[in-house]
Design a protein around this nucleic acid. Structure first.
Length: 418
DNA sequence: TCTGGGGTCCTAGGACCC
DNA sequence: TCTGGGGTCCTAGGACCC
């Protein structure tokens, strides 16, 4: 039999924090989003108390205090590093694997004894990395996603064939299915289609007429006919972004300018490490989603004449876009930069004007590249363009309870005494 | 006072062209 | 001065995901 599995780390960010704080095993732990805004990961003890995902921190601060929960700010460098270790182990067991997110991967396999096979993978990850995982096995990605949630509620492993689906289909609401969000759930609901069984009962042509190709795909996947393949080698990322909320709202152009320059630096640094270039840059500044100015956000895009990763060229474009977006009346809460049209350096076609600009461009590119290599060497941004200074960081976010960089910084290494 | 960030894919609607 | 439909491209924004 051919199977598709989804391996998912259990409350991943919490598990990462516990790796270095084993005293917190079995105790209530939460991890907050950046800016310490809302809850993004909860230990079982927290879930059992009915504290939801994405709840604003300020609303539950008191409750968390009362129950003695440990609270962490998010620490992505640590989570990325642990993630890398998890998938390294899975890769040694399975060849066809698609890393889907920081804590999940799909893989396919053929076996007459799927349980033994996935149990071995689960055990190996837990022993070698120390992160608990759950594995759901079925016939398509969409099925495997759901079966994984079943696994989480039971032993950490669930394997469903046709019989299990037939038995459960009438009790699974479509809103619980991967790819069906609020909007689509409502569309289905309006036609009286509420459960997986309801959807499977419809004829393909009716689904096609009502919901188009997306609906047909969903139906096939839930029937166990895989239409979404495993993407073992991921193509080049299509876009890169850096955005962040401010601790306090601002209408000060210079503060926004500083934030935009900071975010640009972050995304260009990523471009540099991918050895890629961009030809589309977007700048966005937005007010709070919850206030009176919710609809006063602005975002502007510019197409560049040729792919580049030169900080000077991109900064010039970014500043121009910011000026178009900026309205001094609006209290901004967030700023960000998005690069798209990403291409690898090898696949470069070059601009018609390259010959005229090349001397200039080379000079700029190498200066831009030099800035990144110096900063990389020192592990912090010593050299910056313009006024991205340490003193004018009013736009920075809050991070009150971040854990030490146990795995990515020498100075934060744990000391073991014997 | 306080309510995340990083992605992909799809589409509405205007500009422009024939 | 009035007469049109059809196509593409682009931007901005939304749905959905983790």
């Amino acid at each position: 039999m051919k199977y598709i599995a989804l391996l998912d780390c259990n409350n991943f960010f919490v598990s990462c924090e516990r790796l270095f704080r084993p005293d917190l095993l079995g105790k209530p732990v939460v991890v907050l989003s950046s800016n310490d805004g809302c809850v993004v990961a909860r230990s079982k003890e927290i879930k059992d108390r009915g504290i939801g995902m994405g709840v604003p921190y300020f609303q539950i601060k008191d409750t968390l205090n009362e129950i003695g929960a440990t609270v962490f700010s998010s620490h992505f460098a640590l989570y990325r590093d642990v993630s890398r270790r998890v998938f390294e182990v899975v890769r040694t067991c399975q060849s066809e694997i698609e890393q889907y997110s920081i804590d999940e991967c799909f893989f396919t396999f053929e076996s007459y004894d799927p349980h033994t096979l996935v149990a071995a993978i689960k055990q190996q990850v837990e022993q070698e990395v120390g992160i608990p995982v759950s594995i759901g096995v079925a016939s398509s990605k969409t099925q495997a996603k759901y079966v994984n949630t079943v696994a989480k509620k039971t032993t950490g492993i669930a394997i469903w064939g046709e019989e299990e689906w037939e038995r459960a289909a009438a009790d699974i609401r479509l809103s619980e299915i991967w790819g069906v969000g609020r909007g689509r759930a409502r569309q289905f609901d309006e036609k009286g289609i509420r459960t997986v069984a309801d959807l499977l009962k419809c004829s393909r042509s009716r689904i096609d007429a009502l919901f188009g190709i997306e609906g047909v795909r969903l139906q096939a996947e839930l029937r166990g006919e895989p239409v979404l393949g495993i993407k073992a080698s991921r193509p080049l990322q299509k876009s890169l972004m850096s955005t962040r909320s401010f601790a306090k709202e601002t209408s000060d152009y210079d503060v926004l300018l500083n934030a935009i320059k900071y975010h640009l630096y972050q995304v260009v640094k990523d471009l540099e490490s991918m050895d890629a270039k961009t030809n589309v840059i977007r700048v966005m500044i937005t007010p709070s989603r919850y206030g009176d100015y919710a609809f006063y956000g602005a975002s502007k895009e510019a197409l560049l004449t040729a792919p580049t990763r030169d900080l000077f060229t991109l900064q010039q474009a970014a500043v121009g876009l910011l000026k178009q977006c900026f309205n001094p009346e609006v209290p901004y809460k967030k700023a960000g930069v998005v690069l798209s049209g990403i291409s690898s350096t090898e696949a470069e076609t070059g601009s018609l004007f390259d010959n005229f600009e090349s001397a200039d461009n080379n000079g700029k590119n190498s200066l831009s590249a030099t800035i990144f290599s110096i900063n990389k060497k020192h592990g912090k941004p010593l050299v910056q363009l313009g006024s991205v200074s340490g003193t004018n960081k009013k736009w920075e976010s809050r991070k009150d309870a971040v854990s030490p960089s146990y795995t990515t910084s020498w100075s934060d290494l744990k000391v073991v005494r014997t």
